[in-house]
Design a protein around this nucleic acid. Structure first.
Lengths: 169, 169
DNA sequence: CTATTAACCTATCGGATTAGTAGGTTATAA
DNA sequence: TTATAACCTACTAATCCGATAGGTTAATAG
């Protein structure tokens, strides 16, 4: 549990009334981490927890993690094609890790499943795109802010490996 | 310009080939910062740069920042209703800041325009929602990772005020 | 008093994406 | 040869984004 009280980060008494008024009928729209990515990470962690290199079947992960099997199939397939997993067909088949969990960074997993990590294309390292509306990125008030967000997110995701997040608790 | 070489954060030589193969026809989908929020921040910065308290018209911001005027109208209206802006109708009317730029945190602006800052509902402070699939958040491999991302993002957005991002360069 | 201005309000819409579902084919092991 | 599990292709309902259209209300200038 992370203790955040007193840090000053979450003191927004001024707009709390607005938040509360809105909260009641506010659906969580901004799913920045898609279910696809979430399921993919969970599946990788599930396989990593096994320790051995024996293939794990999609059906087992699907049941254990409450994920639609067909949907999960497509995700694991993508992870195989991206070089994270190996596969074996037929009875006793399934998916297994190719690299060690310690060598799998969360940045690379998320980049493959979700796409860019940056919140806006104009600060993306791997998927850069210029903004239509901005004549100058230097003068853009959003640009430098989003660079800071990107870097802090990259730091966290780059510091975490599959081994870290699949450690048994 | 931020120098990141040698930090180890962006070394993904293993999957670089995958990235490149995918990059060509990859549209930037994951727009975590909507245009609405982006335009809203730009507009606030535009008004803040004025310094005085004279109302700024939507049309002026629209032209200067290349934003659809009608779309911008709805955004500024929302910012007024959220307590960031005041307004004045008729000739010489427009929008003006109610608080000092130094007192407007980017967290609060983004929360109002975009919604939650967390990437997943289950780690959101203001818009918490339990996951359907997770029996236990403690055991969830994604949960703790997303808490770290949330906190680092909150740190950045909480450290930046409107004054910071609208500083003339 | 009237015209102009600019905020304010309501409704609608095309395109894109997400999270699947359906129904099959191929390769491997017992 | 049969069961198994990965692999492949196509489709869909629901949802959201980024607008656009067309008006109403309130304040100011002349």
């Amino acid at each position: 549990m992370v203790i955040l009280a007193g840090t000053g980060l979450f003191d927004f008494s001024v707009e709390n009334s607005i938040m509360n008024a809105k909260k009641s009928n506010f659906k969580y729209i901004r799913n920045m981490l898609s279910k696809k990515t979430k399921y993919g990470i969970k599946a990788l962690a599930f396989i990593a927890k096994r320790g051995d290199k024996k293939p794990v079947q999609t059906s087992e992960i699907s049941k254990s993690e409450n994920i639609s099997q067909k949907f999960l199939e497509s995700i694991l397939l993508e992870l195989r094609k991206s070089g994270f997993l190996g596969s074996k067909k037929g009875k006793g088949g399934g998916y297994y890790l190719i690299k060690e969990p310690e060598d799998i960074l969360m940045t690379s997993v998320i980049r493959v499943l979700e796409g860019p990590i940056a919140m806006v294309p104009c600060v993306s390292l791997n998927y850069y795109e210029k903004c239509d509306d901005c004549p100058s990125e230097e003068a853009c008030s959003v640009h430098s802010l989003m660079i800071q967000v990107r870097d802090s997110t990259l730091k966290v995701l780059g510091d975490n490996t599959l081994a870290d997040i699949s450690a048994k608790k």
